[in-house]
Simulated scan of single mutants.
Amino acid sequence: MSVSLICSCSSCPAHGESSATPSCPFYPSSSLTAAEWAILEPLLPPPGNTTGKGGRPEKWPRRLVCDAIFYLVRGGIAWAQLPHDFPPAKTVYDIYRWWTKTVVWQRTNDCLRDRVRMRAGRAPQPSAAIIDSQTVRGADTVPASTSGYDAGKRVKGRKRHIATDATGLLLAVVVTAASIQDRDAAHRLLAAMAARFCAVSIVVADGGYAGRFERWAKSVLAVAIQIVKRGHTATGFEVLPRRWVVERTFGWLVKHRRLIRDYETRPDDHEAMVFLAAIHTLTRRLARTDHQGT
């Protein structure tokens, strides 16, 4: 039997009702409200054994599992440190890994981003993108085979390369060793983006992407790279046209403490954490605008 509530209690903060001794956890910075869950739930894969034809039914309510995942991403804790009022950490991790392998997080982010774009009066498919990278120091859980040293930033760890639309919403992410040059990783990033966003014809980037990457993008993907450089006399921080959008996106992402440092043993886990941070941000934005519209 499919369980649609977060728990079996008759009243709790997660249900929008008061209770002195709630039966399920609710953490305001990470837990999904009823409005947020109504947005997110239809985008998740169908529950197992919904027809009684083989396979075990899901034991734990999905809303509680998602709350546990967002608690970890928002708080930056280890899986084993999940509070005991959530499902067992191994259960939560196994569900997270299965949905990572089946590209659930990427598809969910795409659906939410399209809704935000359409609500802003834009077409679901963007016609322009902005790319950049961010080096993140790696923890001792990051294997040496997938990490490297960024000589420019003097940081050992990984780089996350992201592409956003003109409003800063996440389109694609690729995680590499920090030693990989931006323009080398950008081949993978643009190839992944072009496979899903065929309408993108202009990509804004900084001077690190100039040169052979520009020529490759034009000849292979028919995408024009628009380089926006700092002024020759600029000192310190400078707001650059259009490029500031992707910097703001990095700011949104690192509000989730799991992304301040790289703890993931696998690069695809790091990519999943980036998508989860974007999903959490978009779900709250949509729920907030729905509430303001009523």
Rank of each mutant, 00 (worst) to 15 (best):
S2T: 13
V3M: 12
S4Q: 08
I6Q: 10
S10R: 12
S11W: 08
P13S: 05
H15Q: 15
G16R: 01
G16F: 01
S19F: 09
S23Y: 04
S23H: 13
Y27N: 08
P28Q: 01
P28R: 06
S29K: 13
S30H: 08
S31K: 02
A38Y: 00
L43G: 06
L43R: 06
P47L: 03
P47H: 00
P47Y: 00
P47Q: 04
N49K: 04
T50K: 13
T51G: 09
K53Y: 07
K53V: 06
G55V: 07
P57C: 00
R62V: 00
R63M: 03
L64A: 05
C66N: 02
I77G: 10
I77Q: 05
I77W: 08
A78P: 12
A78S: 15
W79N: 08
Q81C: 14
D85E: 13
P87N: 02
T91R: 03
T91G: 07
V104H: 02
N109M: 11
C111F: 08
L112R: 01
R115V: 06
V116R: 06
R117V: 02
M118W: 06
R119D: 13
A120F: 09
A120C: 12
G121V: 09
R122Q: 14
S127V: 11
I130N: 01
I130P: 02
S133G: 13
Q134E: 09
Q134C: 09
R137A: 14
T141M: 09
T141D: 14
V142L: 07
S145Q: 14
T146N: 11
D150N: 15
D150L: 05
K153T: 12
R154M: 11
K159P: 06
R160I: 08
H161N: 10
I162Q: 00
A163Q: 00
T164N: 06
T164S: 09
L170P: 04
V174H: 04
V175D: 01
A178I: 03
A178L: 03
D182T: 07
D182M: 04
A186C: 08
L189I: 05
A191N: 09
A199W: 05
S201E: 12
S201Q: 12
I202F: 09
A205W: 01
A210N: 11
F213C: 09
E214W: 11
E214M: 15
W216L: 11
A217Q: 03
A217T: 05
A217W: 01
A217C: 10
S219Y: 12
V220P: 12
A224G: 10
A224V: 13
I227Q: 10
I227T: 14
V228S: 09
K229Y: 06
E238C: 11
V239Q: 13
V239R: 14
L240F: 10
L240V: 08
R243M: 08
R248C: 13
T249M: 10
G251A: 13
W252Y: 12
R257T: 11
L259E: 02
I260L: 15
R266S: 14
H270M: 15
A272T: 14
I279T: 03
T281S: 08
T281K: 06
T283H: 00
R284D: 01
L286Y: 07
R288I: 00
T289R: 10
H291E: 07
G293N: 15
T294R: 12
T294H: 11
